[in-house]
Structure formats: structure tokens, C-alpha cells
Amino acid sequence: MSEIAEAFRTAFQLIVGFDAELGEIILLSLRVSLSAVALATLIGVPLGAAIALFRFPGRGVLTVLLNGLMGLPPVVVGLIVYLFLSRSGPLGVLNLLFSPTAMIIAQCVLVIPIIAALSRQGIEDLWREYEEQLRSLGAGPGRAILTLIYDGRFTLLTAVLAGFGRATAEVGAVMIVGGNIAHVTRVMTTAISLETLKGNLALALGLGIILIILTLGINSAAYLMKSAAQRRET
């Protein structure tokens, strides 16, 4: 019990004292996860929308595949990305291993299926509702996709937030491809993991509390933006 109280005290001290090293770790976490999610959104949303609208052979298989890949273990993603980025791997010449860019790539791979699968579901539901209307207006597929993405933007926001949650919470992938190097690739989750290994449980839990507060903050901001936008529309 005292450990938990100690953790809250540690978290409080870390926030109030604003430790420079902690600030660096938080910034890197945000930089990596936000970049990964931005990239994954650019790829995942159009991908999900395309699967929702177009009929093509293998569509069912692709849908099941995307849904299944939502549960991809981060450590497997990390391992695959590592094998590609390793000096002995096909992309070794890029010299990206143990860099923030490698971490962004790994988290992006992890998050694309989540964003794509959730946007496919959301857009498919809207498409069912508006298909006739859009077709009667003579909208081509490109325009239909844009309209549906706009119309479903709040659903898509949830998909993006789900992806962001996954990216900030995972440790397996960034540990393997980032290497948890101090001041270079150490992020919140790998720092928590390291402090746990050192037996600094209070510090580890304190960092965990800060991570939760950050995630809550970003979700609250998204929620406020969404409700403000909805209010303006009505």
C-alpha cells in the first residue's frame, strides 16, 4: 500500500518539480506517437474508406485481416520492423535502427490496422445510409469518399484516438526498434519498464500516472473540440 502512496507522491513531485529529463521523455513520446498516428491516419482512413465503398474480390478476406491485425502484438511488430531495419536486413542501408524514426515506423504499422478497420466500419455504415442519395446526386467514388469522411469525421476521430491510445501505451515495439537509449529513444513506456527492472517501483508507477494524465488530457481536448464543433453546427 505504501508503495502506491509513494508513487502518487513521486508523480506529484515529478510534475511540480518539472524534471528536465522527464520533459525530454514526454516530448519524445508525444513526437513519436503523434507522428505515427498522423501517418497511420493518412494511410488508414483512405484505406478503410476504399474497402467500405468498393466491391472487389478478396474484400471479405481483407476486412477480416484488418480486424484481426487490430490485435497485432507490439512485440511482433517490433521484431518484424527490426528485421527490416537491421544492418543485415533489406532496409539496413537507411541506418534507421535505434532512432525515433524507427519507432515511428513501428508504431505506424501497429496503428494502421486499428484506424483502417474502425474507419471502414464507420464509413460503411454511413455509406449504407447515404449510398442512394449520393448516387442520385451523381457523386463519383472520390467525391463520395470525401463526403463520407467529412460526414463521419467524429467517428473517425474515435478511430484515431483509439490508434493514439495504442501507440502511447505499447512498449514492446519501441523497446526493440528504439533500444531505450537514454536521451535518444527513451519514451514513457520504456522508461517505466526500465525503472521497474531497476526495482524503482514508485518512480515507475509515478511515470505511469503521468502517462495516464497525458492520455486523458489529449482525449479531453479531442472531446472538447468535437463537442464545440457539433454545437456550432446545430
Binding site: R31, S35, A38, L42, P100, T101, V184
Partner: peptide, 18 residues
């Protein structure tokens, strides 16, 4: 999308500048 891309470019550029 443009904002996202911009943010991305910023992030990636700081990532490779070191």
C-alpha cells in the same frame, strides 16, 4: 490533412536533424 502532414514534417525533421 495539410496540418497533419505539416506536423509530420516538423516531427520527422527534428528526428533526423540530430
Amino acid at each position: 490533412l495539410a496540418l497533419g502532414a505539416l506536423a509530420l514534417v516538423c516531427f520527422l525533421s527534428t528526428a533526423t536533424s540530430a
